[in-house]
């Protein structure tokens, strides 16, 4: 039993013969008005437990578990699309007897980026906007949960939900590749690289999504704002990259990618994880090592920045 169990004896309770001496009878200074009801003297599970509960509950909520059937539709649909495409790719690879998968593990998230955008856009407001809108945030903070606990639990839950979304199809591809008896070392290496990239993507996207969603208590507007934060930079960067290609300014293509979240991931995995860059040019253009390193630093700084921003956001607990 945790040591922070409060003293249950009520100093002013006259004739409380029921209070057997096992609980201390020290005067509780934090009792405002004691009218003699029986106190809770069970175990107090503390901060760590509350944080873990908040994490599991947020992670389940991200997939609609424990919520209404209607809320399960969007996440289930998006998760289904992610897995279905992987299954089709595996079926094609096995059916036609290919000696490698139709696409690399690291390419998967890039090709299906709209689905990932939609997932984070649909579920980040679910995670934080509802708490703001129904003013449950002050209720959390009236418990032993601290600001850091709340933010880190929400952040970790969203990042984990995204990792499940991006890593499960990779696992399907990997299992399928092994069943098709493709080269074991090649596939394992590619799978590991894909997982690292998926982890970085989850961390970055969860941060951006939550930071934007925490600004608005309106779910609909939050969804649109989050999706805009991902697609607008992507659209703008793609247009600029296309122009840079036509102008034969190939060095600029990698640097342009720094301005869009998915471009950051693409740069990092092209530089460090042996992926084929998915730039908006007729042929893939490798970013320079400097652009790749810069992308990694920007991605990590952005994720950390979003975390700090969330901490700041909840300093005023009310709204």
């Amino acid at each position: 039993m945790p040591s922070d169990a409060p003293a249950t004896g009520s100093p002013g309770s006259t004739g409380s013969t029921g209070s057997t001496g096992d609980s201390g009878t020290t005067a509780a200074t934090d009792v405002i008005h004691d009218i003699g009801y029986r106190h809770y003297d069970g175990p107090r599970l503390g901060r760590g437990y509350a944080r873990r509960s908040l994490f599991t509950q947020s992670l389940r909520a991200a997939y609609g578990l424990g919520r209404s059937a209607k809320s399960k539709v969007p996440p289930a649909l998006l998760f289904g699309i992610m897995c279905l495409v992987a299954l089709i790719l595996v079926a094609v690879a096995i059916g036609t007897g290919m000696d490698e998968l139709p696409l690399e593990y690291t390419d998967y998230a890039i090709y299906l980026q709209p689905v990932i955008f939609l997932f984070i856009a649909a579920q980040a407001p679910v995670s934080v906007s509802r708490d703001l809108r129904f003013r449950t945030v002050p209720l959390y903070f009236s418990r032993p949960v601290e600001r850091l606990d709340y933010v880190s639990a929400k952040y970790a839950a969203m990042a984990s939900a995204l990792f499940v979304l991006t890593a499960t199809p990779l696992l399907i591809l990997y299992v399928g590749a092994l069943l098709a008896k493709l080269d074991f070392t090649d596939q394992t290496k590619g799978f590991a690289q894909g997982l690292v990239s998926a982890a970085l993507l989850s961390l970055l996207f969860a941060g951006i999504g939550l930071a934007i969603a925490a600004l608005t208590p309106r779910r609909g507007f939050g969804v649109a704002a989050v999706i805009a934060a991902f697609t607008v930079p992507f659209g703008a960067v793609s247009a600029l990259q296309g122009i840079a290609w036509e102008q034969d300014n190939l060095g600029a293509i990698g640097w342009f990618a720094l301005f869009s979240p998915i471009g950051l991931i693409d740069n990092v995995q092209s530089t460090f994880l042996g992926a084929t860059p998915a730039t908006a040019s007729p042929e893939p253009v490798d970013p320079s090592t400097a652009a790749g390193t810069a992308a990694l630093l920007v991605a990590l700084a952005l994720a950390a920045g979003c975390f700090l921003f969330l901490l700041r956001r909840y300093r005023k607990a009310g709204l």
């Binding site: 209607k70 969007p74 699309i81 709209p114 939609l118 856009a121 969804v223 649109a224 999706i227």
Partner: peptide
């Protein structure tokens, strides 16, 4: 739908773009 924004974006991004 209450999830109109999501479905609208699914149409615009998944259907039209992807």
């Amino acid at each position: 739908s209450r999830h109109a924004v999501v479905f609208g974006l699914v149409y615009a991004l998944v259907w039209e773009a992807l």
